[in-house]
């Protein structure tokens, strides 16, 4: 048996910080996304694109983008998504690419549809197309002399034989890596993040609790700040899981953690309070300036926690996860080293 640790009180707190970076959209290869848009009856809009909503909120992001591009409201937007026989390719959900790639493709499609409609109205009102504004379901001239609802405008176009439709294709011009030295332009937009973590380490049980995380991430432009926060919070907690408890185990190729009783996930009792700040450094190479957040949100968390554990109790954990057993073993080793040192001194 090991003698009890002589460090009192047994709970120790510490803080750690880490930074990180990430590239937006597919790596070291050209990326593309397509979309179709139609200004539809009733002043609504129909958007068709092979977008993949996996819970991150991309459909909402697109609805907000469409609303601003066309001067309508998010609730006026219908998005037909992800059916290879019905929608244009927008490629996969991954690589933190959807807001960037599909957001911009949809914006381009909307601009074309809007232009079709505006052209008709500009002729009717005898003004230049640039002098027409669409917002909140109203289309009008800059000087307010002429206006109608978007619903009327769509009808007007259709009466003239024009359906206001548009399409958009957005490209990210990434280049492959040189096979010898890896040089190349893998992305055109980069994001940066940093997080501080505060932990409490129980020196008797080795248990680590992450109490707070302060996260700052550049997302280019936050279309829906609450959604961005949601991605940060979800990413941080997923990383807390990997840092402290999750471990898919196999013995000689045979999996041994095959259910959620053996594979431990963070619950509401394990999660830190996550405090976020969103930084907006718009991407200059794309129409919207947006970048992304899904994956970069979890890059700095694990090292920030590991650094915080060291700050709290002076042991460095080099292998994930930092389970209570590992932390205890490291504490014991540290104590033994100190004892030897004392003996020699």
């Amino acid at each position: 048996m090991n003698a009890p640790l002589r460090i009192f009180p047994k709970q120790k707190r510490g803080r750690g910080v880490a930074a990180g970076w990430y590239g937006i959209a597919r790596t070291a290869t050209i990326d593309r996304a397509g979309a179709w848009a139609e200004l539809d009856d009733g002043g609504t809009a129909k958007i068709i694109t092979g977008v993949t909503e996996i819970g991150e909120g991309i459909l909402t992001v697109l609805a907000q983008i469409v609303a601003d591009e066309l001067g309508i409201r998010p609730k006026d937007v219908t998005i037909g998504d992800n059916d290879t026989a019905r929608s244009p390719e927008a490629a996969h959900a991954g690589a933190t690419r959807q807001t960037y790639m599909i957001g911009n493709a949809v914006a381009l499609a909307c601009r074309e549809a809007r232009q079709r409609l505006v052209k008709e109205l500009a002729q009717k009102w005898q003004v230049s197309e640039d002098d027409i504004i669409c917002s909140n379901g109203i289309i009008r001239t800059l000087d307010h002399s002429q206006s109608m609802t978007m619903s009327e405008a769509v009808q007007y176009c259709k009466n003239r034989g024009v359906v206001p439709v548009g399409s958009g294709s957005f490209t990210a011009n990434h280049t492959g890596l040189d096979p010898e030295n890896g040089s190349g332009n893998p992305w055109q937009a980069y994001v940066y993040g940093a997080q501080v973590a505060e932990v409490e380490v129980d020196t008797e049980t080795g248990e680590v609790q992450v109490l707070g995380v302060w996260a700052s991430h550049d997302v280019g432009r936050a279309v829906n700040p609450q959604g961005v926060e949601g991605q940060i919070e979800g990413g941080v907690v997923m990383a807390v899981g990997q840092t402290l408890m999750e471990d898919y185990k196999q013995e000689e190729g045979y999996p041994t953690s095959m259910n959620l009783a053996k594979y431990i996930l963070p619950t509401s009792l394990d999660v830190p309070q996550v405090n976020s700040v969103i930084i907006e450094d718009p991407d200059p190479l794309s129409p919207l300036g947006v970048k992304g957040i899904g994956e970069p949100s979890m890059i700095p968390t694990a090292p920030a926690i590991i650094n915080a554990i060291y700050d709290a109790v002076g042991v460095r954990i080099h292998s994930l996860p930092a389970t209570p057993e590992k932390v205890l073993a490291a504490l014991r080793e540290k104590r033994e080293r100190a004892d030897t040192h004392e003996m020699l001194a």
Binding site: E53, G57, L59, T60, A63, Q64, I65, A67, D68, G71, R73, P74, K75, V77, I79, S135, N136, R221, A222, V223, N224, P225, Q226, G227, L288
Partner: peptide
């Protein structure tokens, strides 16, 4: 927010 611009606002998730 009921009125645009909507980019930058916490519009409800459409789903």
């Amino acid at each position: 927010k009921e009125e645009g611009p909507f980019i930058g606002s916490n519009s409800f998730r459409i789903d």
